[in-house]
């Protein structure tokens, strides 16, 4: 028996919205400790990793580990039928399920919707991602990071991110010209202004803005985002989801030929 009930179903809707442009199909692994998912984009330069802890669910039961192969597009179609205030319950009682049941219930418990989504058998291509001590970690407003990426992507396809002890600089060079946005360390009480820099070693890395803009679809999941970088390593962009877990994106850096 597997059953997972989310009090705030809208979080699940937002997660699926955040990843649906990046990955087409995913294996969700359910275990006693919660749900996890890892998937790469078709070019294998970006990866999404989701972890949801059992404690963050209103009800959670998973008697034995199961893998749920899902089409994100089809999952998205079903989740469109859930209201933003609904609870969402995922359920299956088969050991090797061919479908996953969904229950959506509104706050007054006056409307209950039930769907079943056919599952797919997918090759798992899971990568071992080591726990890394990143040499530059930036925590800032997710909306502000999203705005910077969107603005710069009209000038260039790539952005260079350079850190120092005091600031982080986002630079672009394009056919029309060049520019940069520098954000300084700011210990404001307001989330929207706050910028936390933890710089053990400065880094200078270049990334494709197209992917960063896709990651930023997760902006509604968290008011802050953390950018984790080490020289010659993939960027890790993390959105923490309250008590529930985290949504992480990894992106390979651009390198000179």
């Amino acid at each position: 028996m597997f059953e997972a009930k989310l009090q705030q179903g809208v979080i699940f809707k937002k997660i699926v919205d955040a990843i649906k442009d990046l990955v087409k199909s995913v294996n969700i692994d359910a275990s006693t400790s919660g749900l996890s998912m890892q998937a790469m984009d078709s070019a294998h330069v970006a990866l999404v990793s989701l972890k949801l802890n059992e404690n963050g669910f209103k009800d959670y039961r998973c008697d034995r580990p199961i893998t749920l192969g899902l089409s994100i597009e089809n999952l998205s179609k079903i989740l469109k039928c859930a209201g933003n205030d609904d609870t969402i319950t995922l359920q299956t009682d088969e050991e090797e399920p061919s479908s996953l049941k969904f229950f959506f219930e509104n706050q007054q418990a006056s409307k209950i919707s039930e769907f079943s989504l056919n599952l797919m058998s997918l090759d798992s291509e899971s990568l071992g991602i080591p726990d890394t001590d990143y040499s530059s970690v930036i925590q800032m407003s997710s909306a502000e990071f999203s705005r910077i990426c969107k603005e710069l992507s009209s000038i260039s396809e790539t952005v260079e991110i350079e850190t120092s002890k005091e600031s982080v600089k986002f630079s672009v060079q394009g056919d029309i010209g060049a520019g940069s946005i520098t954000v300084k360390n700011n210990q404001s009480d307001k989330d929207v202004d706050r910028v936390d820099l933890q710089i053990d070693q400065p880094v200078k890395l270049t990334f494709a803005l197209r992917y960063l803009n896709m990651f930023n679809k997760a902006v509604s999941l968290s008011s802050t985002v953390s950018l984790n970088m080490s020289e010659e390593n993939p960027l890790m962009v993390e959105y923490k989801i309250d008590d529930l877990g985290s949504l992480r994106f990894y992106l390979a850096p651009k390198i000179s030929d």
Binding site: H44, E125, N233, P234, A252, D257
Partner: peptide, 14 residues
């Protein structure tokens, strides 16, 4: 010109 390696260059297959 800049290129981009696959993530499998950085992370091992499991």
């Amino acid at each position: 010109n800049k290129n981009q390696n696959s993530l499998t260059t950085y992370f091992s297959n499991q």
